[in-house]
Nucleic acid binder design. Structure first.
Lengths: 225, 225
DNA sequence: CCAAAAGTGTTCCGTCTACACCCATGG
DNA sequence: CCATGGGTGTAGACGGAACACTTTTGG
């Protein structure tokens, strides 16, 4: 291969994943203890280096898959973080991605295997390098996005109750919402389908289970919450 | 220096600048013909490689300064672009930034010196690599930002008329707005100050010149347009 | 004197918000 | 039988959208 830019310096490129989950009415992030030097033992996001034969998006997906075994996960780029001294080892520029997963898809066994755990976004400890800043930015972006795009369903099981959905919004936005107003808005979105199924876990009376109809959404992609 | 990550591959990192300006009631971008191989002669954003001793933000600012001679310019990161084959030469990941400048600060002389020109965002030609995608994303981000943050003033002279400001919003959002409603909203923002000065260039009657009061804004940062 | 841009308020309508009670069931 | 969460409608407040005429002055 011809080398065109030989006079320029190269840098190490990594990706870091901010993995959001929703559990126990709380928005959580998956973090662990860093397993390599420098910074071994500090709280850290899960990340990895970008290979020369993969795009940034691919690297992010591969990294997430390494950790979770999951494919086809909703991921969005948060941005590139590149202060000179952000990594105490050597110059590393990192591109952060956030992912939304259903916590049920990531069981206890995997948690222990990888030495990671879910922590409430409100209670994230001081983390390695600039990982706190990454989480903060990811959260803001997700908060914006969730208002106008149907990404909330990525954090829930396929079948969910309206109360679950409402609690999710409350957790993400950090404020309670009125039940009747919330449900009124849901009713206007035909792609949030009521099923015949009833959830009897969360209440004695039982709550109707709903489902996000992707095809229907594509026909009339109007989402507002 | 200790090397921690020696087994990983490094990549070339560049920054590309989407430089927005407002002129003749149109939103424009500053683009030129690429001066190096590969892609010599194609329409391109102005960019440069990131050095090992500078952050991404610094690299973007330096690059912008090389082209315009301007300092302290409003810049925001658009994101990292990193498909494997985005650069026909070799693997280059690029971080895009958008900048807002007052076209009056960038005169004809500089335009010719650097072989760049202002083109309407609506009429941007097919460009080198993924530069069209960068411009598109930058534009969307700027469009969002301009609604809730006082960045519009970066595109105008220090003193401006309300009609200029309105035309700027119309150009950015691609739709006309009602003059009276627009001015009503302006009146509610005390940090958009009316001066004693009158602009006689754009009209016979003369229009009041306004100014953005940064200090006043900081005391009560509520911007909505 | 007229063309061209500046400047100025009010009404209407749709949207958002606040708010309270009955229902079904498991334990 | 009662505690727990599920489910439902309306009225009033607020904010955004529509809309037309007068003023000033250079040419």
């Amino acid at each position: 291969m011809t080398t065109f830019y030989k006079e320029f310096q190269k840098v190490l490129l990594s990706v870091d994943c901010i993995i959001f989950g929703f559990d126990n009415n709380k928005l959580k992030v998956l973090i662990g203890r860093r397993q390599m030097d420098p910074g071994r033992g500090e709280w850290s996001l899960y990340g990895g280096f970008v290979r020369n034969d993969e795009s940034l998006d691919e690297a992010a997906n591969r990294t997430l898959n390494e950790l979770t075994g999951l494919h086809e996960i909703y991921m969005r780029q948060v941005g590139a973080f590149g202060t000179v001294d952000r990594d105490p080892g050597e110059r590393v520029v990192s591109v952060a991605y956030y992912a939304l997963i259903n916590v049920k898809d990531y069981d206890e066994k995997l948690l222990k295997e990888h030495g990671v755990e879910w922590v409430e976004v409100e209670k994230v400890p001081t983390m390695y390098s600039d990982h706190n800043a990454m989480i903060l930015k990811a959260r803001k972006m997700m908060q914006q996005k969730i208002k106008t795009e149907p990404i909330s369903f990525q954090l829930l099981p396929q079948l969910f109750t309206l109360t679950q959905l409402q609690r999710l919004y409350e957790a993400v936005n950090g404020e309670e919402v009125d039940k009747r107003n919330f449900r009124k808005r849901i009713k206007e979105m035909d792609f949030i389908e009521k099923t015949e199924l009833i959830d009897k876990v969360s209440s004695k009376r039982g709550a109707a289970l709903y489902r996000f109809n992707k095809k229907m959404y594509k026909e009339d992609p109007n989402f507002k919450l």
